[in-house]
Simulated assay, not measured.
Amino acid sequence: MIDFTGAPAKADLHRYLQDARDALLWKLEGLCEYDVRRPLTPTGTNLLGLVKHLACIELGYLGDVFGRPSGIPLPWVADGAEPNADMWATAEESRAFVVDLYRRAWAHADATIDALPLDAVGTVPWWPQERSEVTLHHAVVRVTADAQRHAGHADILRELIDGAVGMREDDGALPEGDAAWWQAHRARLERAAREA
């Protein structure tokens, strides 16, 4: 039988979480303040807001839920905060501030992952009481899934901004093709969509 509760399982889970963290921060590199903040969807999704949101997610699910509060103030998720305030950065919240917040959230989350066994039980106070207990394993998987999902959002946002794609600068994860090839590829897909 395979042991899914020990150090190898933790290391595997942590690697996928860290991959998403790194991919998300890479999406900010080389962009001006406007581009990291500008809303690119009708609901306002933006790169820096995704980072801010995920910092809150990590501090909540991999901190507070297991009785390990970080002490980091998060006024944008406090009672009475403006709805969706964790999904964008104010002009006063610099990129450096948000990135540092995220890195501090990583450190706190990683300390929780290191300190507790995967079968440790925590309580999610914002969930209904009848299903509020979770294991650390569940919480890490949930946070990783959320981080990967938002890294995917960031992929699309960054491509819309300047065409940069992939998980890292050295890993585009797409076929090689110059601008003309991609334009022809996109035109072909557009034709197929219209024909359907």
Score class of each variant (00 low, 15 high):
residue 181 W to S: 08
residue 153 H to F: 12
residue 172 G to H: 12
residue 177 G to L: 11
residue 154 A to Y: 09
residue 173 A to S: 15
residue 162 D to H: 08
residue 155 D to T: 01
residue 163 G to I: 02
residue 157 L to N: 04
residue 155 D to H: 11
residue 181 W to V: 12
residue 177 G to K: 09
residue 163 G to R: 14
residue 159 E to F: 07
residue 179 A to W: 05
residue 174 L to F: 12
residue 174 L to C: 11
residue 155 D to S: 06
residue 153 H to K: 07
residue 152 G to R: 09
residue 163 G to N: 11
residue 174 L to K: 07
residue 162 D to M: 06
residue 160 L to T: 04
residue 164 A to C: 04
residue 164 A to Y: 01
residue 160 L to I: 05
residue 157 L to W: 10
residue 159 E to G: 13
residue 167 M to E: 07
residue 178 D to R: 07
residue 166 G to H: 06
residue 167 M to W: 10
residue 179 A to I: 14
residue 172 G to N: 02
residue 172 G to F: 05
residue 169 E to I: 06
residue 170 D to Q: 13
residue 171 D to N: 10
residue 157 L to M: 08
residue 176 E to P: 07
residue 166 G to P: 01
residue 165 V to L: 10
residue 173 A to F: 01
residue 165 V to P: 03
residue 170 D to Y: 02
residue 155 D to I: 00
residue 176 E to S: 10
residue 180 A to S: 13
residue 156 I to P: 00
residue 154 A to L: 12
residue 156 I to V: 15
residue 155 D to W: 04
residue 152 G to W: 09
residue 175 P to S: 04
residue 169 E to Y: 08
residue 156 I to L: 15
residue 172 G to A: 15
residue 175 P to R: 04
residue 154 A to R: 02
residue 152 G to Q: 09
residue 163 G to V: 06
residue 160 L to F: 05
residue 163 G to C: 09
residue 178 D to N: 15
residue 157 L to T: 07
residue 175 P to C: 01
residue 158 R to T: 01
residue 157 L to H: 02
residue 175 P to V: 12
residue 159 E to Q: 12
residue 162 D to V: 11
residue 161 I to R: 12
residue 178 D to A: 11
residue 156 I to Q: 01
residue 174 L to G: 02
residue 167 M to A: 14
residue 177 G to M: 11
residue 160 L to K: 06
residue 176 E to C: 00
residue 160 L to C: 12
residue 178 D to P: 06
residue 174 L to N: 09
residue 161 I to C: 07
residue 180 A to E: 15
residue 153 H to W: 01
residue 161 I to Q: 02
residue 180 A to K: 13
residue 154 A to K: 04
residue 171 D to T: 11
residue 173 A to M: 12
residue 169 E to D: 13
residue 180 A to V: 13
residue 176 E to W: 04
residue 175 P to L: 09
residue 175 P to A: 08
residue 180 A to W: 04
residue 171 D to F: 09
residue 178 D to S: 11
residue 174 L to T: 13
residue 181 W to K: 00
residue 180 A to R: 14
residue 179 A to L: 13
residue 166 G to K: 08
residue 160 L to H: 03
residue 158 R to G: 07
residue 160 L to P: 00
residue 160 L to S: 05
residue 178 D to T: 03
residue 168 R to G: 01
